Simulated scan of single mutants.
Amino acid sequence: MSDTQRHYATDEMVKRINASGRTLSAAQYVYYYEEAFDPFYAVVREASWIMDAIPTILEIRGTLKFAVVGGSTSPFQVSSIGDDTFVIMIDERAFYGLMKLSLRIQSLPPLANLIKNEEKSQPLDYQNKFLLDITKDIVFHYEDASDLISGKAHRSVYQAAITYILGHEIAHVAHRHLEFLQSNEFPQFCVDDTDRALTLRTLEMDADSSATSSVVDVFERFAKALEYSSATRGGIEKTLLLRKHYVLGAYIALIYLDTLTLNYSPTTHPISYARFLTTSGVFQRIFRQHDPEAVNIPEEMRKAVIEVFVQLSGSLESLGYPMASNVLVSNGEDHQVALYDALGIAIGLEQLAPLHSRWARLLPYLAAFRRGGKLAPASAKPI
């Protein structure tokens, strides 16, 4: 059995999911391995090595597989099919859309030069467009991406993006979120709709934190290999470059998920900017602890990716996206100036404060349910 087949859902699993209708899957159809291998080889290949790396790192107890699906209303989804068996379902259109967006963003100035990529022109006019209108056009209307794949394009960027997304779904399994929601303990965390929504947002925050840690764990294996193979300043620079790639990939994943969403005011997920602050905060904490030389990379990559869209749209004000500008300041002439500063970060962190407090209360219960991985320590008083 090949490595790709080893991680793919068995025919029996696929048959069971398909037979359940929409009970176990939001997809119209789950592909059997033989159906998926040729037409969706890129999905199968990338998902296979990620599924090999992350469960090994997290030491998950149970069976975890993946499958390619079509026509899904949930682009990335994990389901329990019983007997400690879980299947992550990846919509093939969602995978290729993420790849397309990643390749497009990393090929544009000034980001292309910063990450040592080949710069390629953008032929379309996006003047005064919102950031998400630009990404929607790239994902849904940019049909032929062959020019982006050709030449020097870093696979590590979109590999980090898909690692982040799959890492999020794997965290739901490793931290036993699914079982917790069905447990006798859960009712005390959902006394009403507001309380239930707070708990669900907290679990999603936990999955985002774990996804970020998984990206670091997976790609630092390659980073260490670069250091060992070239124990010189050149080797260190290659390592720092890879760190820029995987931080960028995680940010692109977040932008992509916002591109696909139809709900910009979610109640069961953290708002978009809070998710970004969680992800960038985990990166900063890890770098601060293990490699202070890389601590500025998360902010450097945020600025670089936003500058891509500023050049496409024409101004920071036109983007309308919190990762780009988190406050608007009046200049006294009935004109507002967009900024990204500490005040906006503080306002964004206020969205996360109740989630950290709920996490402190959830932690003892989730520790008892955990299948693998490490749960973040409590950092606030429980509510």
Rank of each mutant, 00 (worst) to 15 (best):
S183W: 07
L198D: 00
Y126R: 08
N128L: 12
D192E: 09
Y365K: 10
S229Y: 02
N113D: 13
D217E: 15
M13R: 01
A27G: 03
N128D: 15
L328V: 01
V247E: 04
M13T: 02
S150H: 08
F95W: 10
Y142A: 11
V282E: 10
V14M: 05
A380S: 14
R6I: 06
L103A: 11
A153V: 13
D258S: 13
I286H: 02
Y251D: 02
E204C: 15
L328R: 14
H168S: 11
L319K: 01
I54D: 01
F180P: 04
V282W: 09
T239Q: 13
L101M: 08
P75L: 03
E237R: 14
S150N: 12
G70P: 05
A378P: 13
S74R: 06
D144V: 09
A324E: 09
F309R: 00
I81R: 04
L343F: 15
P377Q: 12
V215W: 12
P55G: 07
M323L: 15
A171N: 01
A67P: 05
M89L: 09
A250M: 05
F86T: 00
A160S: 15
R104E: 02
V43H: 04
V305E: 15
D38R: 14
G97Q: 11
A197G: 08
A94M: 00
T73V: 08
L200S: 07
D147E: 11
I90F: 05
A346E: 09
K136Q: 14
Q77T: 04
A36W: 07
N113A: 15
D291R: 11
A160W: 09
S213K: 08
E227G: 14
W49N: 09
G373K: 11
L339S: 01
L349R: 15
R221C: 04
G373Q: 11
S150P: 01
D217Y: 14
R104Y: 12
D11R: 08
I88F: 00
S156M: 03
Q188G: 03
A161R: 05
V305R: 11
E220K: 09
L328E: 11
Y126D: 13
L328M: 12
E118G: 03
E299K: 14
A53M: 12
P75Y: 05
A160Q: 03
A376L: 10
H269W: 12
F283R: 00
S272Q: 12
A207K: 07
A19S: 14
G348W: 03
K238F: 00
G373D: 12
M1Q: 04
L257A: 01
R243C: 06
A53N: 11
